[in-house]
Design a protein around this nucleic acid. Sequence first.
DNA 1: CGGGCCTCCTGACAAATGTCATCGCCGGCC
DNA 2: GGCCGGCGATGACATTTGTCAGGAGGCCCG
Lengths: 203, 203
Amino acid sequence: MSPVRVLLADDEHLIRGALAALLALEDDLLVVAEAASGPEALAMARAHRPDVAVLDLQMPGADGVSVATTLRAELPDCKTMIVTSHGRPGHLKRALAAGVRAFAPKTVSAQRLAELIRTVHAGGRYVDPELAADAISAGDSPLTAREAEVLELAGDGAPIAEIAERASLSQGTVRNYLSSAATKLGAENRHTAVRLARERGWV
Amino acid sequence: MSPVRVLLADDEHLIRGALAALLALEDDLLVVAEAASGPEALAMARAHRPDVAVLDLQMPGADGVSVATTLRAELPDCKTMIVTSHGRPGHLKRALAAGVRAFAPKTVSAQRLAELIRTVHAGGRYVDPELAADAISAGDSPLTAREAEVLELAGDGAPIAEIAERASLSQGTVRNYLSSAATKLGAENRHTAVRLARERGWV
DNA sequence: CGGGCCTCCTGACAAATGTCATCGCCGGCC
DNA sequence: GGCCGGCGATGACATTTGTCAGGAGGCCCG
């Protein structure tokens, strides 16, 4: 039986290299390509057509989920899985919506990762139980589309005037949206609201 | 010649395990202990007295720099080095002040890391050139001690009243410090000031 | 068709925040 | 000693922000 062809994408060379070395010890897995950024991962995938793509969530250029989305469209036979250090509930949801087959934190062992690659290649799915529990307890975003949009623009601490301009909205409207968003999130001001929404992965 | 005894501290099991496996290939290096958190790293260091401690910057409990500080006091013979994913200029400065012998991003290869461990063990020092350049161009923090402290408390978007209480200061004083800090950083409000200070590693 | 929800807006008011001037106290430095 | 800078505070003021009420239009669904 031919080995599972794996693409490894992570911007941290140390991890990527170490991982490649460890996976090489498994004789049914073959790392055919490595990438250090989102665009590079896409290029590598197109060139090598791996069976499974292991993607880091945070990479320069394009994050793991958007890479997975593109991959799903271009190479439907290539299964994707996400490995991340900071697992936010909302990311998990986005990832699953993008057709990702597995979602695991970097706290898993290499042994476990190898098993996951096999599982995914065999058509299975996997979601870290703890992350799944978080996602369920966090529930769906209570924010409307505009609320989330405005909250995102408020992300870097910009004043209302700037947010209004960038969203092409009136300042009053922006304040209303921010206020209702903060109320829904139980925050006392928009800045903590942004933080909470980020933690839950809703922005 | 006896091998270099290494302590590995990183909260991501995947990386720690992979790293341990790779370093095990070097016959002059011996990983004698692993830790997944700051306190655990300290305990392991006390128990195993390694020659070199490789510390991740962000860990639960206590970050790499504070672990290094304690280690320097308790085990002066144990050389420390920091490996991190997000290298901020200020972190580098703090680390060097804490007696850290080497500071490298996780984008280095395992091979390079092994060399660094040897260098550090031999009494040498190393700082990633790019990080060093950033640190130099970022310059010193223009903030006074209190300004930095108050700015840090403002980090999670707390209202002035809460900051004042936690810093045991008057609300007016807090507002003055935040105002001057924001002015020095060229920010239009404290939230962007916090962001800027974080980017430069001044908080 | 009516009700409910989202999207925008306006206006008004209260609270939080940013800014400035000013003060006293202390410590270091020329 | 005089000067400067940091620390801590107060008070006053303008601005920004949060909150509330309400209105117009649109869309979907029973």
